[in-house]
Structures are given as C-alpha cells and as structure tokens.
C-alpha cells in the first residue's frame, strides 16, 4: 500500500489549489455544511483524494462539502454540499 486507507489531510491542503481560483484565502472562510449545518473554517475540512481530484468532507458528519477537479486547462469546483461560505473581508 502506498497510502493509509483512511488517510485524509486537513483543509489547509486546499489553500494552494483554491488560491488559483479565488483572490482571497478560502481556507479562512467559514463554510456551512448543507447536510448537518455545522459551520467552521474550510481549513477544518477532511480532504481526500489526489491533487487532480480533491474531496472536502465535513468534520462533523463526513458528508461531501466540496469537490475540486483540476484539469490541465480548467478547474471544476462543486460546492453543492456547502450552503454558504462566509468570507472575512477587511472593513470598508
């Protein structure tokens, strides 16, 4: 085996791939799980998969909150498992 079977990384591993798409650090954003309602920083998600295809799961209920597929010339971001992302911004 090259990998432990239940191995996951924390949501900080999404920082690089998401910084390609968003101008803000999304790992600091608060995500609300569409399944159980738990709200917490994206950095606390449990991340499975490979660099090409990442799955972010809720640390509370393990349901999928985010899918991120990275192709050679496009990325697909599926957030249907996330109700909202609260993105902290500098005050006006």
């Amino acid at each position: 085996m090259t990998e432990r079977d239940d191995a996951y990384r924390d949501g900080n591993s999404l920082a690089g791939p998401l910084s390609e798409i968003f101008a803000v650090d999304v790992t600091a954003a608060g995500g609300r799980c569409a399944h159980c309602g738990l709200t917490g920083p994206v950095a606390t998600m449990r991340v499975y998969g490979s660099a090409e295809a990442m799955v972010g799961r809720c640390p509370g209920c393990e349901e999928v909150m985010m899918r991120l597929v990275r192709g050679p010339d496009a990325a697909w971001l599926d957030l249907r498992g996330t109700v909202t992302l609260r993105i902290p911004l500098p005050p006006d």
Partner: peptide, 11 residues
C-alpha cells in the same frame, strides 16, 4: 507495479 489507493472518503 504497486497498487495505489485513492479514495473520495473514508473506507
């Protein structure tokens, strides 16, 4: 020659 394991979630 090995058998990499990739999963979208817990086993």
């Amino acid at each position: 020659h090995d058998f990499p394991v990739l999963s979208a979630g817990p086993t």
